[in-house]
Write a protein that binds this DNA or RNA. Structure first.
Lengths: 141, 141
DNA sequence: TATTGTTATACTCTATAACTATA
DNA sequence: TATAGTTATAGAGTATAACAATA
């Protein structure tokens, strides 16, 4: 019956935050070897998975706001990793350049290695359980 | 045998990031009603749980660097939420003021509500499983 | 009018380097 | 010397507001 004051570690939200922070650092390190930040890599990989979508559509998929997409796309374009196509209207769908496609594949490989290194020890069942818990948290049930 | 390009959502690391991001936003909203940012609230709650530790020790517990602790502590001190004691040496252990203790309790309550709202639907077993997966990720096995 | 893309701006968290003061 | 605290500074991600161009 001691007046135990709860530690932050008892909170699942806190556990999630600390785990995510360490995971992001690990991923950032792996991607830095490719000259990519995590957001840049996620854009390349998203575009690889779904070619010819617009930058605002990528932003919607990755939860990056329009205003923040602009400089990211500008940077990737300046590095000749992506190109704008001549779509009709203001949208200008994006595509990976040859160089961009190769880098996207490399980035995807690093992400796979990151996942394997950090979650590979979990059983397939536990991996499925984890996904089933996490996904509704950000998709909103 | 289609050449399916993997989606980011298949990666557990990505799931963790998106979930953590949404959870942090939710928590930040709840704490903002108390005039606290997440880092500030975590410092108050940590100090409530373990009185009279130094600011660098708090930083070690919460993974906040010394250099970043300085302005945080200065801000909380200016708001009369914490006070420095006259410990020997350069350490100057911290303590919550009466006002700080009350706010820490409020913050802790918001954190509990946040956890309940977002993880409360999970069975006790699933909550234990989640903690057992997350904690080693940041403690380093 | 609604959407896209852009610019400007600001806030939060995090990171490194360098300095002072104290044991 | 090792640790604590501080200052300055920078990078990265995220947020809002406002504007122009296009359907």
């Amino acid at each position: 019956m001691s007046s135990t004051v709860h530690q932050l570690e008892t909170l699942l939200g806190y556990q999630l935050r600390r785990a995510s922070s360490v995971m992001m650092s690990d991923l950032a390190e792996r991607l830095a070897e490719l000259g990519l930040r995590t957001t840049e890599a996620s854009i390349l990989v998203a575009l690889e998975a779904e070619p010819l979508i617009t930058q605002s559509e990528i932003g919607r998929r990755l939860a990056i706001q329009r205003a923040n997409m602009a400089p990211l796309i500008a940077g990737l374009t300046a590095r000749a990793l992506i190109e704008r196509t001549n779509g009709p209207g203001p949208s200008r769908p994006l595509k990976l350049s040859k160089k961009g496609r190769a880098l996207a594949a490399e980035a995807r490989k690093r992400m796979d290695e990151h996942d394997a290194a950090n979650f590979g020890h979990l059983s397939a069942t536990d991996q499925d359980r984890l996904r089933a818990i996490l996904e509704p948290l950000w998709r909103g049930r």
